[in-house]
């Protein structure tokens, strides 16, 4: 019969390695029509990182995300980036983009301040305008200020910046130190049905609670978490590279390397924890790889809750789960016979 179980797993994950140089750089140019252009070396692979970077620049300059034109991943024109790897883009490249936009903004403030009759640090940006803090009616359009910066002041509003989480070698004696700039945390809970006659496991539901700092784009965070959970389900129950004696993979295809389909995917509830990291761009950290860390452990704990067996090698295929159930029954039978 089918037996239901629940399991929980918690994890932390590091963001922004510091054991070697880990820089990103960005260039931001504010245009005379009030739009901006961002040059970044990082790569969009569908995770939405360029959207996030455009949002960060837009927030810093007080313009709309659609007004930020992103030029990326072109070694001829864009600054080198350490890569869209290690869940570092929002944190490291995002910091570089924000700093570059801040420098361009500083030029605009220096131009706007005498026109508005205040000091630059009394200015703020909002809704395509540069305005006096507390007196939003006294403002100038950001495009007009950019035009004046170039045409009158001779100081076009450009900013370039790099961000490198402070490189810090570990203590060679103790292995102690600060290997990463920041950390993210998550808890996932899985609910499963295990058929105790076949060992088949069905993951019904996963609830995932993630701290990723302040989410720049909650919809993209959800997309990352849902995708990570599907990878975690595959890791837990299905996916396995099989090799022959010569080390050649014998299932290098999707017929025999089984990965989750829409029928294997549980219902997912994503909970984004309120959080703010003062070292991240607008409080953000990251969310990519951490999403699939806890899933398999939560599912294996749920299997234990359902049928009382610990499967300690992945994937927990029906064969392995059934073998474990059988071994447990045999053990219990022996105990019964021995009268213990």
């Amino acid at each position: 019969m089918k037996r239901r179980g629940r399991g929980i797993a918690c994890m932390w994950y590091p963001i922004g390695f510091t054991v070697s140089a880990n820089p990103s750089a960005a260039v931001v140019k504010v245009n005379e029509d009030g739009t901006a252009t961002l040059l970044t070396g990082t790569v969009e692979t569908g995770q939405g990182s360029l959207t996030i970077l455009a949002q960060i620049v837009a927030q810093e300059l007080g313009i709309a995300t659609d007004d930020v034109h992103v030029v990326s991943a072109d070694t001829d024109t864009t600054p080198m980036d350490t890569g869209a790897i290690a869940s570092r883009t929002t944190y490291v490249t995002g910091n570089a983009a924000r700093l570059a936009a801040e420098k361009a903004k500083k030029i605009l403030f220096d131009v706007a301040a005498p026109l508005l009759g205040v000091k630059p640090d009394h200015l703020e940006v909002s809704d395509h305008k540069i305005q006096i803090k507390g007196f939003p009616s006294r403002s100038l359009h950001i495009g007009d200020v950019a035009e004046r910066a170039r045409g009158v002041n001779g100081d076009p509003p450009l900013g370039s910046a790099s961000f490198n989480p402070a490189t810090a070698a570990l203590d060679p004696e103790t292995g102690q130190g600060k290997p990463f700039a920041t950390y993210v945390y998550a808890t996932q809970i899985a609910e499963v049905d295990v058929d105790d006659e076949t060992g088949e496991v069905e993951v019904l539901r996963v609830v995932a609670s993630h701290d990723c700092g302040t989410p720049i784009n909650p919809m993209l965070v959800e997309g990352q978490v849902e995708g990570g959970i599907s990878m975690g389900v595959g890791f837990a129950l299905e996916e396995e590279m099989l090799f022959d004696a010569n080390g050649r993979q014998i299932n290098p295809n999707l017929t025999n390397y089984i990965m989750p389909t829409s029928l294997d995917m549980p219902k997912v509830e994503v909970d984004i924890v309120d959080s703010y990291d003062p070292t991240g761009p607008f409080g953000a950290k990251g969310v990519g790889e951490p999403t699939c860390v806890a899933t398999a452990a939560a599912i294996l704990n749920a299997i234990h809750d359902a049928v009382g067996v610990r499967v300690t090698s992945l994937p927990a295929t029906s064969e392995k789960v059934y073998a474990a159930i059988k071994a447990k029954r045999a053990q219990e039978g022996k105990r019964l016979a021995a009268g213990t």
Binding site: G46, Q47, E222, G223, E226, G227, G228, I229, S230, M231, L254, M259, P260, T261, S262, L263, M265, V268
Partner: peptide
Amino acid sequence: AGNLCRCTGYSK
């Protein structure tokens, strides 16, 4: 079910 996706988990 006949369309594999490696990124999204199909939810959205």
